[in-house]
C-alpha cells in the first residue's frame, strides 16, 4: 500500500502513464464518436435523437463511478492515512461534477424531443440531481477549511456518509416517485439494446474512462505541485523570521 505513498514515485509513474491514457482517450473518442454519430443505426422511433444516448449513458456511468472512486479514496485516507488518497479524492470531485452535469444536460436535451419536457421528477433523474448536490457540498467542504489536514478529514467523512446515503436516497426516491408517477412512459432506450448500438456505447464508455484517468492524473499532479509551492512559501516565511 505505502509503496505508492511517496508522491515522488507517484509523480514519476503518473508522468509515464499519462501520455498513454491521453492517447487512448483520443483514440476511443475518435472511434466512438464516429461509430455513435455516423455509423450506428438510427432508432425507428426516436430518429437521430437516440444518438444522445452515446454521450449521455457513459456520463451517467462515470458520474457514479467517480463517486465510488472518491468514496474508496476517502476510506483509504481515513483507515491508512494515505496522503495520496486525499489528493485523488479531491482531484476526482470536479470531474464527477462535470460527468453529472453532462448527464443531466444531455438527458434534458434528450427529454425535450422524446418526452416533451426538459425535466421530470422521475426517480432516476432525481437521484442523479441529488448526486450533483452531494458532489457540490463535498467540494464546498474541501474549500471551507484553511488547514488542509482538517479539510481532508472532514471531506473524507462526508464522502463516506454520502456513499452510505446514496442507496437510501435512490431507494426513497424510487418509492416516492412510484407513488405518484408510473415509470412506464419514462423508460429509456427500451428493454433490450441492439448489438449495433452496444458497440459504440462500449467504446464511448472506454473513452470516458480514459478521460477520467487522464484528467485525474493531471489534476493530482497540479495539486501536488501547488502543495510544493505552498510548502516553499512557508519555508521562506520561516527563513525570513530568523534574522540572517
Amino acid at each position: 500500500m505505502h509503496r505508492f505513498a511517496n508522491p515522488a514515485r507517484f509523480l514519476r509513474l503518473a508522468r509515464l502513464i499519462q501520455p498513454w491514457t491521453a492517447a487512448a482517450m483520443f483514440a476511443c473518442f475518435g472511434v466512438g464518436l464516429y461509430l455513435a454519430l455516423v455509423a450506428s443505426p438510427i432508432d425507428y422511433l426516436q430518429r437521430d435523437t437516440v444518438r444522445i444516448m452515446y454521450i449521455h449513458v457513459p456520463a451517467a456511468w462515470m458520474a457514479m463511478q467517480t463517486y465510488a472512486v472518491i468514496a474508496v479514496a476517502s476510506l483509504v485516507s481515513i483507515v491508512w492515512r494515505h496522503p495520496l488518497a486525499d489528493v485523488a479524492a479531491r482531484a476526482a470531485a470536479p470531474i464527477g461534477v462535470a460527468f453529472t452535469a453532462i448527464c443531466l444536460i444531455t438527458g434534458s436535451l434528450w427529454g425535450k424531443p422524446t418526452w416533451g419536457t426538459w425535466w421530470v421528477w422521475d426517480a432516476r433523474l432525481t437521484s442523479v440531481l441529488v448526486l450533483l448536490f452531494i458532489y457540490m457540498g463535498y467540494m464546498a467542504l474541501w474549500s471551507a477549511f484553511d488547514d488542509r489536514q482538517r479539510a481532508a478529514r472532514a471531506a473524507a467523512v462526508l464522502a463516506l456518509v454520502g456513499a452510505v446515503n446514496l442507496p437510501i436516497i435512490k431507494f426513497s426516491v424510487d418509492w416516492w416517485n412510484t407513488l405518484h408517477q408510473p415509470a412506464s412512459i419514462l423508460r429509456r432506450g427500451g428493454p433490450t439494446i441492439d448489438p449495433s448500438m452496444l458497440k459504440p456505447l462500449a467504446v464511448m464508455g472506454l473513452a470516458y474512462l480514459f478521460f477520467f484517468i487522464t484528467v485525474l492524473l493531471m489534476r493530482m499532479r497540479a495539486d501536488l505541485a501547488a502543495q510544493r509551492l505552498e510548502a516553499a512559501a512557508e519555508r521562506r516565511v520561516m527563513a525570513q523570521e530568523v534574522p540572517a
Partner: peptide, 26 residues
C-alpha cells in the same frame, strides 16, 4: 470562492426540495 457558490447550490437545493414536499405532478 466561498459565499457566492454556496448560495447558488443552496438555491438549487431549496428549489428541488419542493417537488419532494408537494409531489412531482407538473
Amino acid at each position: 470562492r466561498s459565499g457566492g457558490a454556496i448560495a447558488l447550490i443552496f438555491f438549487l437545493i431549496v428549489v428541488s426540495l419542493f417537488p419532494f414536499a408537494v409531489g412531482p405532478q407538473p
